[in-house]
Simulated scan of single mutants.
Amino acid sequence: MKAELEAIHRAGVPGVWAEVRENGEVWRGAAGDVTPDVRHRIGSVTKTFTAAAIMQLVERGKIGLDTPVHGDATVRTLLNMTSGLADYRFLAFPSLLEGSSQSLEDNQFRHFYPRELIKLGVDAPAVPPGTYSNTGYLLLGRLIEKVTGMTAERWITRHVIERAGLHNTMFPTGTRIEGPHPPMYEALFGLLDPPRDYSVYDMSWVGVSASLISTVEDLNLFFSALLDGKVVSRKSLAEMQKTRPVVAFDGSTVEYGLGLHRHGEFWGHDGSVWGAGTWSFHSADGRRQVTLAVNLQRWHDPAIDEALKAFQLKATQL
């Protein structure tokens, strides 16, 4: 798989790194100016952690999957993206609709509060159920706080991250990533040329929806524990694996459950924030695990897409 990583780098990604596990054997590799052990922003893979925390509260009888949260939206419909609540990203970053990157500059050090982002989403016109949205996961974060009396970040850390035995996974406490990490280049489909490093950024704009920092090793450990029933119960996991078609931000349709994607015979999640991308998928039987990270996002080059698909295909061959 080293050759496939090198191909992604040659296609134009500055840094790419991965960890693949098969039947107890671990392979790590990297191409470009990175190493396999660096920390990075994992984007919407955070949603699986938040969903696991919600399922733990369901198991404790603190909430129900059909508990109303906002209007007709329930815990379940927020988790599986069928609530019809719009995403707020273009309202928080309005220049993106005008073909400008100015909002990324304006918001780099801006601190957003969940309530203001939620308000943007819930006040916007409804979208068809099955449309990907961060708004619902911020609402779920507020629900965690209401039920537990502590911040959602602290609850998720204590009951999901620590329970899974992770040591390099954390919510950001400032604009910088502590420890070794690569630059994270955002291209914005050519609007930023050359791509700009956004590894320093206030991630309050996504909160418990997409702000976690982790490593490829920790993500494999997390999904191993989750799919083995060590983070949530087998019953909860079965609920998380009930999927429906959801239209993602890039227009593709994914089979989405309660904070989990299905990708063929694999389960997991992918994620993207400014300059950082993650792809983490795992066979249901635990035999094969694949986590890949890149430090370039929103390129406009089919060669990169083809190289990524080649790696994913080879890495997920059972």
Rank of each mutant, 00 (worst) to 15 (best):
K2S: 14
R10M: 04
G15A: 15
G15E: 08
G15F: 03
G15P: 03
A18D: 10
E19R: 15
E25G: 00
E25H: 13
A30H: 06
V38S: 00
R41A: 02
G43N: 05
T46A: 04
T50N: 03
I63A: 06
G64N: 11
L65M: 12
D66K: 04
G71W: 12
A73T: 09
T74D: 01
T77H: 10
G84T: 13
L85F: 11
A86L: 10
P94L: 11
S95K: 09
L96K: 03
E98T: 12
S101C: 06
N107K: 09
P114A: 03
K119Q: 14
G121L: 09
V122P: 12
A124T: 09
P125D: 09
A126F: 03
V127H: 09
Y132A: 05
L139P: 08
L140H: 02
G141I: 00
T151F: 01
T151K: 12
T151I: 00
R158G: 01
A164V: 02
H167V: 14
H167K: 15
F171M: 00
G174V: 07
H181E: 11
H181A: 14
L192W: 14
R196E: 15
V200Q: 15
Y201T: 10
D202Y: 00
D202L: 03
D202A: 09
M203F: 00
W205R: 05
W205C: 07
V206S: 03
V208Q: 05
S209W: 00
I213T: 01
I213P: 01
T215C: 12
V216L: 10
D218Y: 03
D218F: 01
V231W: 04
V232D: 10
K235I: 08
S236T: 05
L237M: 08
M240A: 10
K242I: 13
K242E: 15
R244G: 11
V246T: 13
L258I: 02
R262L: 09
H263E: 13
H263R: 15
H269K: 13
G275V: 12
A276E: 05
A276F: 09
S280H: 04
S283G: 09
A284W: 01
D285V: 04
L292S: 02
A293N: 08
Q297L: 13
D301M: 06
A303K: 15
D305Q: 11
L308D: 00
K314W: 12
Q317D: 14
Q317R: 14
